[in-house]
Structure formats: C-alpha cells, structure tokens
Amino acid sequence: MGGKNSTPEPRTQIKYVPDPSASARVAQLEAKVEKLSSKRPKVEYVKEYVRDPELLRQIEEYQARNRELMEKYDELYQEIRDNNINSFDDLDEHYSKGAEALKRMAAATQPMQMTGVNFALFGITSSGKSTMLNQFLGKQVAATGAGETTTQVQRYDGNGFSLYDIPGKNDEISYFTMEYVAFWKALTARLVLITATVKEMTSVFRLLDAINLKYDIVVNKFDQHQEDERDVLKAQIHAEIKQIGLMGVENVWFISSKFPQMFDDWLQMVHSLTERPHKSNNMTRRNQIETKSNTSFFPQHRARSATSNLVQDQFAAQLHQLQSMGFDDENKNRRLLTKHNGDISSTINSLLNSNHHY
C-alpha cells in the first residue's frame, strides 16, 4: 500500500508580553532595594561629622527616643538628595513640598538634652571662627590660618560654658537632619560669622528662620576695612538683612576677633551671650508655641557667672603678661583690662600711675 506522508502542522508560537505596569513595579522595587543597600548606617553617618564622645552619646540617646521622627527625616533627606538639592534656598525654590515638610518636622523636634551654657559658631572657611574661639577661651585651642577648615563639629570647654565650631559645608543638606535641628534648638546662642556680606550665609539664615530659631550675626574682620568704609559696611549689612527679610536676627556685632579691643562690640557681645533670656533655649515665640516646650535654661546667677568666666578667659593672655611684668594684683589688672577693652598698653599706663581712679 502506498500511503501519503502527512506533514505535521506547525505549532502556534506563544510570545510572552510582560505587563507594563508589572515591569514598572519590578523596576521600582529593584531601585528601592538598591537605594536601601547603598544607604549608610545612621550612626556611621553621624560619626563622620561628630567626633566628640559626649555629643555623640547625646545624639545616639536622642535617636533611640525619636526613631519614628528620625525615619521621616531620613525619607525626606533621601528625596532631597535624589532631586540634587544642595541648599535650603534650592529646596524652597524647587521642592516647596519638601521645604514645608522640613518645617513641620522641625517644629515637632524637641531640643536635645544638653547641660550647661552652650554656644555655636557657624561660618564659611576663612571667616575667622578659630581665631574667635581662641579669643573666647583665652588660649590657642583651634588651629588658625590659611587652609584650616573645620570638617567636624568640635567642642571646646571654657570655664562654665562650651563652644561648638560647626563645619561650613559645601553640601548644606547635611543640616536637614533631626540630629542637627535638635542640637541647634538646644543651644544657648547661635553665632553666624560673615566678613563682607550677609549673602555669604543667606541659605543658613533662611534655614534657621524656617525652623524658627534666633541667631546673632557677627561681622568679623572689621579691622580689615578702612575707617571711612566701616559706616558704609554697617549700613549695607543692615540693608541686606531688611532686603532678604531675615526674621531671627537678635543682634548684629561688628568685631575683630584678632584684635578684640579695637571695637566696643566685642565686650558687648560677650556680655550679651549669657545675659539674654534663656527661655526655651532662645527659640522664637512661634517655635515655643509649636513645640509646647517647657524647657527653661539656667538661672540668671548661672548666666552671670558664665559671663564673668568668658571675660576672665578672654583676658587670660593679658593677665599672664601683666603678672610676668610684676603687676600681681589680678583683680585690679582685670578691672583695668575691662575698662580699656583689653588694651594692654593703656592698662599698663594706668597701673604705672599710682594716683589713677577707676
């Protein structure tokens, strides 16, 4: 029998076409996993900027008490990084939703529990922060000169007070963290150093305004301006404050940290730091209402003591010099140094005049 060979029919090819929405979900999950795997541990990140053991301990305790709020900060922080935002000005202009979220979280952030009288200095490189620290403490504790840049929060202890040197950051979003906001709120005073224009630190001023904190503007290196230019600079600084609309300015000081006796503002600033009211860590009225904080700072007699210690430490070098010259009455020396704004020559002339009155 001669039968025909039958050719099998070709099989129908089934092509898998992925669901676009499912692919998008997978891509989102993969991106999230990659982001989480690349995220540094919080403690490691904090240690990059804080090396002081006591402050680090306070931060870690604060983190443990406020984990839920910290997670919200971290989510916002990551969103800000993803949007290539590098300052509060950028945040406010290009991501207003994030700026509002930061303000709400800052209002809910309680001050860190710090003891004693605490001041912090903010400023860009070469603004004279280290020289100012040394003058406050009356000794050389912070390196000065070209190339000296603060990269970590540094604490320096005086007699009854602590001074913190805050890094001047190129990447300001490092300030947008729960830890920094809580630290700022706990400070007795915040001193922001500039040398020629408010615009040097505009973004920091606006951030402090956004979280409703007061601050002093310190125009340092005032001695480097010619005498006939100084009144012009003063007018310019005050005009810029008004033009930019800064809200938290408590004082504006015009000083030379290298030659503190040159300008009266130096001693006035020293006394102001501890004589001002310390309710709610010097926060603005709006912030006091929002946080409902009952925190009060140290009694006034403690504040006066800290002021005296600041002045004493400030004149330590001059007192030592006078003692080495045979002027042994320390109280008398200090009174005359205060009278002459720390000027050693005028003080010596007064000491040599046996009939002087003060």
Rank of each mutant, 00 (worst) to 15 (best):
M1T: 01
T7Q: 13
P8G: 12
E9M: 10
E9C: 12
P10K: 10
T12D: 14
T12F: 14
I14F: 09
I14S: 09
K15S: 06
A22E: 00
A24L: 07
V26M: 06
E30N: 03
E30W: 02
E34I: 08
E34A: 14
E34G: 08
L36N: 02
V46C: 08
K47H: 09
V50D: 00
D52Y: 01
P53T: 03
E54W: 14
L55R: 05
L55T: 00
R57I: 03
R57D: 14
I59S: 00
I59C: 08
E60T: 06
E61M: 12
K72D: 13
Y73I: 01
I85N: 06
I85R: 12
I85P: 09
S87Y: 07
L91Y: 12
E93W: 04
Y95R: 03
Y95D: 12
K97A: 12
G98N: 04
G98L: 06
A99F: 07
A101N: 05
L102C: 06
R104E: 15
A106R: 06
M112S: 05
Q113I: 03
T115K: 11
T115S: 14
N118A: 13
G123C: 05
I124P: 04
I124N: 11
I124D: 02
T131C: 15
T131E: 14
L133M: 15
L133H: 04
Q135A: 01
F136T: 00
A143S: 14
G145R: 00
A146F: 03
T149F: 06
T150I: 06
T151G: 11
R155W: 13
Y156N: 08
N159Y: 04
G160S: 09
Y164P: 09
P167Y: 01
D171V: 09
E172R: 14
S174A: 15
F176N: 06
V181G: 02
F183T: 07
W184N: 05
W184V: 07
A186L: 00
L187S: 03
V192K: 07
I194F: 05
T195A: 06
K199L: 11
K199I: 00
M201P: 03
T202L: 10
S203L: 08
I211K: 03
N212G: 07
Y215H: 01
D216C: 03
V218H: 02
K221M: 15
K221R: 10
F222G: 04
Q224W: 12
D228E: 06
E229I: 04
E229T: 12
R230G: 10
V232R: 04
A235Y: 09
A235H: 14
Q236E: 15
A239G: 08
I244D: 11
L246N: 13
W253L: 13
F254K: 04
I255K: 05
P260L: 08
P260D: 12
F263A: 02
W266F: 15
M269R: 02
K279T: 15
M283V: 03
M283Q: 14
R285E: 13
R286L: 11
Q288G: 04
I289M: 10
K292R: 14
S293L: 05
F297G: 13
A306K: 11
S308C: 15
S308P: 07
D313V: 05
Q314T: 12
A317P: 01
Q318D: 00
L322I: 11
S324T: 07
S324C: 03
S324V: 02
G326H: 08
F327G: 00
N331E: 15
R334M: 11
L336C: 14
T338P: 03
H340W: 10
G342Q: 01
S345F: 08
N349V: 10
N353V: 05
N353Y: 05
